[in-house]
């Protein structure tokens, strides 16, 4: 047995060295999660407006265009349960916080990150933030969370091609949905609408409960909550499922009725957004983000 173990260990040694080296290289690549986590840890006491949500707010709201000291803590595919965990973790340190902006997108009430095929993104929270979530053991490693092929590409892009790996500005807004690289709005609209249409309502009640918890937490800390359904291009909103959309909008209205400190705004079909404001059918580009940020800023002032 000892001979066998020695033999196997010897055989596996080069592979283990390769994998450990890859893990170190990958974890050393700067990324949005690390940048945002560092910022919020350092400046939590000064933040007055905190933006939470998924890619819709990540690309849609740039704190630079807001008057208050604001920070965008949204990440792609981030769901309400993670928003709540962020709030629970940082709220005690955020002494100046007076407003939380949170998205209520068409798909938000019907999914959580753990239930999507993007659940590998948990590793970014586990490795680069201090947010306490329910992590699976694989999430504590880059190589165990993402495919080998994808990791090789990342190493190649950062170390050999010197491509930028941080795509957000210092205030957490995503800069890589640029108008110069806009996608076909009509093609992406129907496809994404279909992707965002839920196959079951299983998660609705859990998400509603989470939203209420966020509202209660903010109430205890005297923080206003602004819930927004972000703007989308017509090819997206015309292909949505009516019942799912109605359930989403009703959630916002119900919470706004129930709590004085919660307000809800539906910008999904808002007339001021046209094709020049979109990166793809459901994400704003930098022009759209400018307009949307200023509108939210006005709401905060109100």
């Amino acid at each position: 047995m000892k001979g066998f173990l020695r033999y196997i260990l010897l055989f596996l040694m080069p592979l283990l060295v390769l994998l450990i080296a890859m893990e170190i290289f990958l974890q050393s690549i700067p990324n949005n999660y690390k940048v945002k986590s560092n910022y919020i840890e350092k400046h939590s006491e000064a933040i007055e407006t905190l933006i939470l949500g998924n890619s819709h707010t990540y690309y849609g709201l740039n704190p630079e265009w807001m008057d208050q000291q604001s920070f965008n803590m949204s990440h792609v595919s981030q769901s309400f349960d993670i928003d709540l965990a962020i709030l629970k973790h940082y709220l005690p340190k955020m002494t100046q916080l007076n407003t939380v902006v949170i998205r209520l997108s068409y798909d938000s009430m019907f999914e959580t990150l753990s239930e999507t095929n993007e659940h590998w993104r948990y590793k970014d929270y586990a490795l680069y933030t201090n947010i306490p979530l329910e992590y699976y053991w694989k999430h504590h490693s880059e190589i165990l969370s993402i495919s080998f092929k994808e990791n090789l590409k990342r190493i190649y892009k950062y170390y050999l091609k010197s491509e930028a790996s941080v795509t957000c500005n210092p205030f957490g807004w995503g800069m890589d949905a640029h108008s110069s690289q806009a996608k076909d709005l009509y093609k992406t609209g129907a496809l994404v609408a279909k992707k965002h249409t839920a196959t079951s309502k299983n998660l609705f009640d859990d998400n509603f409960k989470t939203l209420k918890e966020i509202a209660d937490l903010c109430l205890q800390n005297k923080v206003d909550v602004i819930m927004v359904t972000p703007p989308a291009f017509e090819s997206y909103y015309l292909n949505l499922n009516y019942q799912q959309l109605e359930a989403t909008v009703n959630t916002g209205l119900e919470l706004a009725n129930q709590y004085d400190h919660v307000s809800y705004y539906n910008f999904l079909e808002y007339w001021r957004f046209d094709r020049e404001h979109f990166f793809d059918a459901d994400h704003l580009n930098e022009r759209g983000a400018l307009l949307f940020s200023k509108m939210i800023n006005d709401i905060i002032h109100k």
């Binding site: 055989f11 080069p14 080998f148 092929k149």
Partner: peptide, 18 residues
Amino acid sequence: RWTFYYLLILSIFYFFGS
């Protein structure tokens, strides 16, 4: 022999998706 096995293992790593 080991190089051959390593190539097989690396190809498994490379194509291992979900």
